[in-house]
Nucleic acid binder design. Structure first.
Lengths: 121, 121
DNA sequence: TCCATTAGTATCAAAAACGATACTACCCCA
DNA sequence: TGGGGTAGTATCGTTTTTGATACTAATGGA
């Protein structure tokens, strides 16, 4: 089994001495960027997806970019990659428990959006 | 008073047809990037700050960068800018109610971090 | 007179993010 | 024989983000 806990080499952040909720720089490193949150949301709420399936839902992402982002997410323990020895090739991506645990963050964002975005609340 | 509600011109996102929590591309546009979440966290949890005060807490940000990010946040209704006609000049930045309302997102992130990051949980 | 202070702006450079295109391998199928 | 389908990689170029540096205005104080 893979070790899905966060192991940051740099504990202290710029806001280390005050009572702020959490080390944002570390979090931004993990899930920041244009695609990661979108990818994670799909994997968490729509379940396992294969590469092309994911790409079709991403609207504008290039193959290279999607590969890069998935590799980074895999490296950070947020996504697993399952290769099937088939032809044509089949690779499936899933959210790890660590990523699944981000569910409440997405719900908090959804609630914020619903409260403040009248046309779609 | 300013209108602090989100007014996105593009309602539909790539994941419009499924039951995903919220339109991540729009949210990433608002609070994505290297600095915005860090700035917002400070303003929300530590209160109003003047420019230099903020800069000192940011660790590595340049003056230009901080100005840009604050301008963007102001434009999107997440931050207000209060200028005092003094010498030397004094400008104070505050989180708007719209930004304050993001509090639960930060708490969700903190909880996630605490659950999954043993050395600091 | 000159320096310190604060919050900038303007400009240029570097780095990172992002995108387009072309290429591979494999097997099936017509 | 040649195309389709999948999941890539490799390369290059562009665009965006980020950083470094120098500059401004205004006033008080040494």
């Amino acid at each position: 089994m893979t070790e899905n806990r966060i192991s940051s080499p740099i504990p202290a952040t710029a806001a280390g001495m005050c009572q702020l909720p959490c080390p944002m720089p570390d979090i931004v490193t993990l899930i920041g960027g244009k695609w990661k949150l979108i990818i994670l949301q799909i994997l968490i709420f729509n379940g396992t997806q294969r590469f092309g399936e994911l790409k079709r839902q991403l609207d504008g992402v290039t193959q290279t970019m999607l590969t890069n982002q998935l590799r980074a997410l895999e490296r950070d323990g947020l996504v697993t990659r399952q290769i099937y020895a088939e032809v044509p090739p089949r690779v499936e991506y899933s959210a790890t428990p660590l990523a699944q645990d981000l569910e409440s963050v997405f719900y908090a964002m959804r609630d914020w959006w619903k409260r403040n975005q009248p046309p779609f609340g």
